[in-house]
Simulated scan of single mutants.
Amino acid sequence: MSPRPASRRAVTVADIARAAKVSKATAARALGDYGQVSDAVRSRVLAAAEELNYRPNALARSMNTGRSNTIGVVVGDIENPFFAHAMRGISDVASAAGYDVILTNSDEDVEAEEAAVDVLLDKQVDALIVAPASSAHVSHLTDVAAAGRPLVLLDRRADGHRYDSVTVDNRTAAARATAELLAEGHRRIAFISTQPYPEPAYSPGGTITMSSVADRVDGVMEALTDAGIPSPERGIRLDARRRGVDVVTRELLEGDTPATAIIASDSLIAMTVFQTVRTLGLRIPEDVSLIAFDNADWTSITTPPLTVVEQPIYELGAAAARLALQRIRGERVDDESVVFDAALIRRASVAAPTPASATH
């Protein structure tokens, strides 16, 4: 076996300086675009850098300029299509402005989120965009402000703190989805979320630590209460990630008074609900109606296609990036909360409950 060829030594600022016949300090100023350098010298230095295929040291540049031209992002679950679409919006806006994006995943765990924030601060990112795993446990986010870094919250708020945020009007969206089911005659309407919850059953007024889910539960409860549905909290199911979405779905559909309609808090939950309904030998929408938050690609090609609450996810991410860039450039002083509306897209997964299911 022939020996591996030695790796080529990285081109340094000193190499550029020798090639351009200038001092190392002058070459550094020209390459970093700071300080006083004549146009003629800058052109000579840049030409030498191009000829030698120089790759700038991002860390050194950030130490000189105080900017890394990067935005750090912490999301809850990179497998969730919601965050994939939001990241595209963030990346497109950041890239157009000359910024790179560093993505980290918290797995919806506060401790993992704290560690991710620390790592991004250590990397000297110019701003952070965070989808907080908990709206109640956000003390670590104050470290971002203490470090002088702009912070934008994505999809969720932070209780008791005023930060720039980009969210959706989840309460109105959930109430609209519930009203759609009520109008078809449903009275046993369930809502499923993977949001952790300390008690076996949800109680009205109970603390839900993620603002987006709390708002959706409020919207469902409000619509059911206004419709005169007794004990509407009976259909609220949280902590489905730990317990298993399939297990929770079976509980809702196999009990003495099975749900006739389910609202899934995201498209991944909806997929498992859809599969479980089929496994039980039930039909959508004849035996159970289903509405999903988020217009994931698969929801339009199933049989039947799902009625969904479509959030402007790309725009959500793009708006978060724009707020972060404005902060970096010092263009704003006051905190800003951007709230988007969501649209209900009607397809074929909602119908009136059959007499048998309604009276079961």
Rank of each mutant, 00 (worst) to 15 (best):
L141E: 05
D143W: 04
A147G: 11
G148M: 03
V152G: 05
D155S: 14
D155P: 04
R156Y: 15
R156S: 07
D159E: 14
G160D: 07
H161G: 12
S165C: 15
R171Q: 15
T172W: 04
A173P: 06
A174H: 00
A175R: 04
A175G: 15
L182D: 02
R187G: 06
R187A: 09
R188C: 02
R188V: 04
R188M: 03
I189F: 01
I189Y: 00
A190P: 05
F191M: 06
I192L: 13
S193W: 13
Q195H: 09
P196E: 14
Y197D: 13
P198K: 11
P198T: 07
P198A: 13
P200I: 07
P200D: 14
Y202V: 04
S203Y: 06
S203W: 09
S203H: 12
G206M: 12
G206W: 13
T209R: 14
T209Q: 09
T209L: 14
S212D: 08
A214E: 07
D215Q: 09
V217G: 01
V220W: 00
M221G: 00
E222N: 07
T225E: 00
T225M: 01
G228N: 06
G228M: 10
P230R: 02
R234V: 02
G235L: 03
D239E: 13
A240G: 01
